[in-house]
Design a protein around this nucleic acid. Sequence first.
DNA 1: CGCGCCATTGATTGCTTTCAACGATTGTGG
DNA 2: CCACAATCGTTGAAAGCAATCAATGGCGCG
Lengths: 276, 276
Amino acid sequence: MNMHDLPVADGSDNPFGARLRGLTRLGGTELGVLERACGPARHVRAKAELVREGERPERLHVLLDGWACRVKLLPDGRRQIAGLVLPGEICDLDSLYAPKSDYAVAMLTACTVTTLDCAALRAQAAQHPAIAEALGFLLVVDNAMLTERNASLGRRSAREHLSHLLCELLLRLTLVGRARGNGYTLPITQEDIGDVLGLTSVHVNRVLQRLRNEGLIQQRGHDLVICEWSTLRKIAAFQPAYLHLDNVEGSAFDIARAPWALQTRRSDGIGFDARR
Amino acid sequence: MNMHDLPVADGSDNPFGARLRGLTRLGGTELGVLERACGPARHVRAKAELVREGERPERLHVLLDGWACRVKLLPDGRRQIAGLVLPGEICDLDSLYAPKSDYAVAMLTACTVTTLDCAALRAQAAQHPAIAEALGFLLVVDNAMLTERNASLGRRSAREHLSHLLCELLLRLTLVGRARGNGYTLPITQEDIGDVLGLTSVHVNRVLQRLRNEGLIQQRGHDLVICEWSTLRKIAAFQPAYLHLDNVEGSAFDIARAPWALQTRRSDGIGFDARR
DNA sequence: CGCGCCATTGATTGCTTTCAACGATTGTGG
DNA sequence: CCACAATCGTTGAAAGCAATCAATGGCGCG
């Protein structure tokens, strides 16, 4: 497996830049503007709550490393994760225009975070149409992922939904150079996954186990490999158009551009053994 | 109903204007700009598909009358409604920045629709910061409703979820003057409701029936009245903050501004009998 | 009047939850 | 270095919520 097949990631390993370069058509000028607008990087402990629901947002949070999530909490304690936030993604882009945050942002692992001042960012958007465009597009992508998960929560079975999530994560992580071929690190608990899928951790365990027994995926600790992309994709009815990866360069995304095809996505090692 | 009752640019009964006035702080100038940007009103038949999934959007669709929805369709035919669109709302605001539509837009009833040119609207947003702000805010509200429904789909029971929907619809319809006290017209089928809630129409029927038998709601044909707002709200754990109604004038929205209180919302008639 | 759509009802099935317990792993303090 | 607590993954049995299947009745409309 060579990283060279995935030229999406930045050399300096800034996933935010990588994501912007992959997703938008921002030029060097605007990328520079955005990067300079970022505050200093900060480390945040796992389980910390970066943003509380209902809070008045002053700055956006950009995830540079680790996994976070947007959380909705019902009064009786039931928890729903409205979205996983991966490296390079903005935790709370809504807050750019929201008077109050509609969800909490919580860290699922230890994370590195930087911030963007909302008012300043709006000002930049007003000056640079390309930035306004890009922010709008990022908002659309968030929205599309939410819409797709809605469909999954409403109409997909646990097995289909979990498969769908695993497929989605592979593409999103590949975009920022955090995947290894068909595999990636899944650093969250089955409880967390359950809160994303609207299931109990017990059921997540059983469904995950079946995927493993059928040889569709492999897991070693927190490392996961999708052994049979084609099958997993078919189970999930995964159609990646909603991720809007069309303009990304790199062969890893052929799948995103040819939603009708069911290719195997086997550019490199299939499992853990292949790496030893 | 004749065309003259639904003037696009007139303040008499234009729900789009009503919604903008209620939700945003747009002044007369910007409201005028937006209203003049609208195309001619057009009638659309029930079940028509205004926008197809994957389509490249050229113009946004504003709903002036009737109910529509955003549809996600799985390959095997299962349908999920990712959002109901009520009078005054924009059917496909995402399309302002999306290269392809992430969902289809379908009419649930006969509708009246007008359009906004995407490119022109983006240009207006670039010129008038207030408009950019307002559009951002509308996008946030859509997003918030989607996030809330996510939580419902994942973590609320059918009974809770349905109650939640009925509460939400009351506030959204009140905002555009389409509610009558605690009641409103619910012009869609139980099948449609099922597709919103991720349930079968059979189950929607049973749950609806129970709410009726318990006296929480009344239904006569397509007219619905919430008889016990306080109870229904408690069942749903309905916290309207996500609708961002904080700035709306009118006592009907006290409930939106005091999410902790459980007032009865009985400003007028409680049921059908009270109106005769 | 007949057709089609929609609401309703009952019986049965099944996916997912709940409850409970146990094992494995990790981190911590004595 | 080991005991211990805490977290997480795993497993089994039982219960429950919602889906499925099938049939009936009401209502509007051509």
